[in-house]
Design a protein around this nucleic acid. Sequence first.
DNA 1: TATTGTTATACTCTATAACTATA
DNA 2: TATAGTTATAGAGTATAACAATA
Lengths: 153, 153
Amino acid sequence: MSETESIDMAGLDRELGFALRLAQLAVFKDLMACLKPLSLRPAEYSLLVIVHANPGLKQLTLGAVLSVQGPNLVTMVDQLEAREVIVRSPVPNDRRAHALHLTAKGRSLLRQAKTAHAKHQARLNRCLGKADAPDLIAILNRIAAAEAWIGER
Amino acid sequence: MSETESIDMAGLDRELGFALRLAQLAVFKDLMACLKPLSLRPAEYSLLVIVHANPGLKQLTLGAVLSVQGPNLVTMVDQLEAREVIVRSPVPNDRRAHALHLTAKGRSLLRQAKTAHAKHQARLNRCLGKADAPDLIAILNRIAAAEAWIGER
DNA sequence: TATTGTTATACTCTATAACTATA
DNA sequence: TATAGTTATAGAGTATAACAATA
């Protein structure tokens, strides 16, 4: 059954991109399983968290925060609005923009989602063990922030 | 221009899944840019590295190593074979399986790709600075390996 | 019966261009 | 002229079911 038969990974298992992909796959798999009973995907959970903490947020700002592009965000907002967990309301001085808010139903859903997410977080912490999670996240954020100069030249 | 206007991230920037996604986005963006002149994507680069280090590898084993499923691997192998950088050759005692090998052209392409990849690696190391890269990768691999128990219950 | 590889297909995520209505 | 949001669309990446050839 085990088809392992000692493969030479040729250093691939020591490359950051490869390790990042597999780790993200595992973490998202767990997070998705946690949120599935609430019919929420990870991106939708992030959206609810940010809108709840920043009521009246405009879509463009939200998209920048989540690294989701305009057209793709429209779809997400459409679906969540159809479920009546968020609403698009008018912005006083700019009739082009939409202010995003959670509904009472949305706040309730977010509360449940945070409970589900806590279980995911606990499993992750158990897996990390004594490894310093804040340190790990700081390094990952630094890598992500370097996007500016990375990729050119 | 800066639409930042102090957003409350509500702890989202301290979550591993969120950090992983952004870091992977940045790293892959850079790697893709490095490999683009050779018309190679990250997954194809990984494939060449593994096949070169394990000549005669069967597709099923390769798929397990790369975490790519059968039907998707067929497409990748088809395209690389059409470019004449790899070949499917018969396996002595099993006429169902195909043994994968790099062609001379493939080995040449891989050599160029490794040079391009070294530049990516150098940028990454510069970005990581004094942070311990092997340590980081060890933690990521541990998270990925936990996939077995993560996600259930 | 089980396994290797393949075909066909579908679903999600992401990306781009062009449009509207406002500013 | 520029901006916020939208529409339509296309391309990756990934997933499953069913099949042929072989074991």
